[in-house]
């Protein structure tokens, strides 16, 4: 794991501990403090790489992103994009959503493009997640510029 990622993770852990958000019970407890969605789920990388576009999120301890709620689309209504390559998530059974997968701690995703294929410079990304403390956040939509090496 690159050092900068480790540092970012430790930062998120410190942020979460600082806000006493590590309550893993389903029922929220009084006095536990909740991060904002932008603090809980940080898009830390959106960059070109040899295979296409690489995206990374850091997820604060005690929070999770839903796999089925991650989406990517062209920012300017351009050509359709390839499917986002996501790693397997942690399985979770939800009484309302059935069998779902979630991501904790960190998520790396790739948008693969073949050689010679036009790679967009901006993307619209969408994600949604919850706190284990029993609170969920509205879907977040962000238009991001793709960093080039």
């Amino acid at each position: 794991m690159p050092l900068i990622r480790l540092i970012l993770l430790l930062s998120l852990l410190g942020t979460s501990l600082g806000s006493r958000a590590l309550d893993l019970s389903r029922k929220p407890q009084g006095e536990s403090t909740l991060l904002t969605a932008d603090q809980a789920f940080q898009l830390v990388e959106a960059r070109r790489d040899p295979g296409g576009i690489h995206l990374s999120w850091l997820i604060a301890p005690g929070y999770y992103l839903y796999r089925h709620r991650l989406a990517v689309e062209p920012a300017d209504g351009g050509a359709a994009l390839p499917a986002l390559r996501l790693p397997p998530g942690q399985p979770r059974h939800d009484e309302h959503f059935g069998d779902v997968e979630i991501y904790t701690t960190m998520l790396d995703a790739d948008l693969p493009f073949a050689a010679g294929q036009r790679v967009p410079t901006r993307l619209r990304l969408r994600w949604q997640g919850c706190a284990e403390a029993g609170v969920c956040y509205p879907p977040v939509t962000r238009t991001v510029d793709i960093a080039t090496p």
Binding site: S11, T15, S19, Q29, E31, T33, T36, Q39
Partner: peptide, 27 residues
């Protein structure tokens, strides 16, 4: 070096949530 890096990162402006940005879970 890691500890120094973490300290620098944690102490950067905006690293910790502002009181106005967070909310209490519960009533």
């Amino acid at each position: 070096a890691l500890a120094a890096g973490v300290a620098v990162f944690l102490l950067r402006p905006g690293a910790q949530p502002d009181a106005d940005d967070t909310a209490q879970v519960g009533s």
